[in-house]
Amino acid sequence: MRYAYYPGCSLHSMETSYDRSVKAVCKHLGVELWEIPDWVCCGASSGHSMGHLVGLAIPAKSLVKAEKEGLDVLAPCAACWQRMVWVNHEINSSPEMKDKISRAIEEEINGTSKIFSIIDFLAAFGMDKLAQAVKKPLKGLKVASYYGCYYVKPPKVAHVDDPENPHLMDDMMKALGAEAVDWPFKTECCGASMIFQDVDTTVSMSKKIVEMAYKAGADVIVTACPVCEMNLDMRMEQINKKFKTNYKIPVVYFTELMAYAMGSVPQEIGLDSGHCTDTQLLLAKIS
């Protein structure tokens, strides 16, 4: 199996533990990744606010390279994934927009490459197959799966899972031998890029999620989005200072736990050093 890989800026910058763990999981499952050569930023939170066309044309610039190679795309970052899904959605619903995007990127784009998020990509292997690949089951670990917004909303375009009560990440955690805690804030927004505009509001938003995971008895929060991870992980102490709490829940990518369960060592995937929250307790619990 060969897929075009679109890492996006975060995975090549601060969030290398996501990049490394996705690659490790793919290796364990026999998936070959072809990184899109000279890919550009998807435009993320700003491109689409500058203009409708520019918000589509920027991600199309990288997407068309995968299309030409005849490959489907794996885009682990939730924001990158959704921007690319929007491109295909608009191309397939408006010939006029298809023409405009093609002119903007100076190449014809047809919207023929399917774009996978890491959640539906891995879930498609089937829980039995994933469970078979497990070498170190995560016995006794209570995991709160945090999906965030971009994978499930708006449901007309981004429908990886149920928009109000998604379960694919929970299913995968169970396949790894962990316990998936039932909690209500799976898709509550973390504040996303507002962390760069209004820290106070964003920290209040992130606090609600951490608090609920804590109340649900989670040992760890897993995410599939670099912005969710950053807003919860990097802001944990800020939350504690602002709200006089003492939350110490590690926040990691679900692919890190999966890679670990399938035999990767923590150092290889950044599970030991790729986060602001302390993952030592987590490592002690699962080793």
């Binding site: 917004c149 971009y150 499930v152 909303k153 449901p155 109000e164 927004c189 996303a192 507002m194």
Partner: peptide, 10 residues
């Protein structure tokens, strides 16, 4: 301030 989480839309 809208971050396009699209909960409203959903």
């Amino acid at each position: 301030a809208c971050v396009l989480c699209s909960t409203c839309t959903a």
